[in-house]
Amino acid sequence: QIFVKTLMGKTITLEVELSDTIDNVKAKIQDKEGIPPDQQRLIFAGKQLEDGRTLSDYNIQKESTLHLVL
Results as ranks from 00 to 15, higher is better:
Val69Asp: 15
Gly52Met: 06
Lys10Leu: 03
Glu63Gly: 05
Val69Ile: 03
Gln39Asn: 02
Leu70Met: 14
Lys32Met: 10
Ile60Glu: 11
Ile43Trp: 13
Glu17Phe: 09
Gln40Gly: 11
Ile35Cys: 07
Ile12Glu: 02
Lys47Ile: 15
Asp51Tyr: 02
Tyr58Ser: 13
Ile60Arg: 01
Glu50Tyr: 10
Met8Pro: 15
Ala45Trp: 07
Leu14Tyr: 08
Asp20Ile: 11
Gln1Ser: 06
Leu7Pro: 15
Met8Trp: 12
Glu63Tyr: 06
Phe3Gln: 04
Thr6Arg: 02
Gly9Met: 02
Asp38Ile: 03
Asp23Ser: 05
Leu42Trp: 11
Asp57Trp: 12
Glu15Ile: 04
Asp38Thr: 04
Ser19Ile: 08
Glu50His: 14
Arg53Ser: 08
Asp31Ser: 05
Leu70His: 15
Lys28Leu: 10
Gly34Tyr: 03
Asp38Gly: 07
Lys5Ser: 13
Ser56Met: 02
Asp31Phe: 05
Asp20Glu: 04
Glu33Gly: 03
Glu63Val: 05
Lys5Val: 14
Ser19Phe: 04
Lys62Thr: 13
Ala27Pro: 08
Ile43Gly: 15
Ile22Ala: 11
Lys26Asn: 04
Lys32Tyr: 10
Tyr58Leu: 13
Glu63Phe: 11
Lys62Asn: 10
Glu33Leu: 01
Phe3Leu: 06
Val16Glu: 01
Gln48Met: 02
Leu70Lys: 01
Glu15Trp: 02
Asp51Asn: 04
Glu15Met: 04
Gly46Cys: 05
Asp23Cys: 04
Glu33Ala: 03
Ile43Cys: 13
Glu50Gln: 07
Thr11Ser: 11
Asn24Val: 11
Thr54Met: 08
Gly34Ile: 04
Arg41Phe: 10
Arg41Val: 14
Leu70Pro: 11
Gly34Phe: 04
Ile35Glu: 12
Leu7His: 15
Lys62Ile: 08
Glu50Asp: 04
Ile12Val: 08
Leu68Val: 01
Glu15Asp: 10
Thr54Val: 06
Arg53Gly: 12
Glu33Gln: 02
Leu18Gly: 02
Ile35Thr: 12
Asn59Ala: 10
Lys32Leu: 12
Ile29Val: 06
Val16Gln: 05
Glu15Tyr: 03
Glu15Pro: 08
Phe44Ala: 14
Ile43Lys: 15
Asp20Ala: 11
Thr21Val: 07
Lys28Met: 10
Leu49Phe: 02
Thr6Tyr: 05
Lys5His: 04
Gln1Ala: 02
Ile35Met: 09
Asp20Leu: 08
Glu33Phe: 02
Leu49Gly: 01
Thr13His: 13
Lys62Ser: 12
Val25Asp: 00
Lys32His: 12
Gly9Ala: 09
Ser56Gln: 06
Ser56Lys: 14
Asp23Pro: 08
Leu18Ser: 02
Gly52His: 12
Ile35Trp: 05
Asn24Tyr: 06
Ser56Asp: 08
Ile43Leu: 13
Ile12Cys: 04
Gly9His: 08
Ile35Tyr: 08
Lys32Glu: 10
Asp23Tyr: 07
Val25Ile: 05
Glu63Lys: 10
Lys5Gly: 14
Ile22Tyr: 02
Ser64Tyr: 07
Thr65Lys: 10
Gln40Ile: 03
Gln30Ile: 11
Glu50Ala: 07
Asp23Met: 08
Val4Gln: 00
Arg41Lys: 11
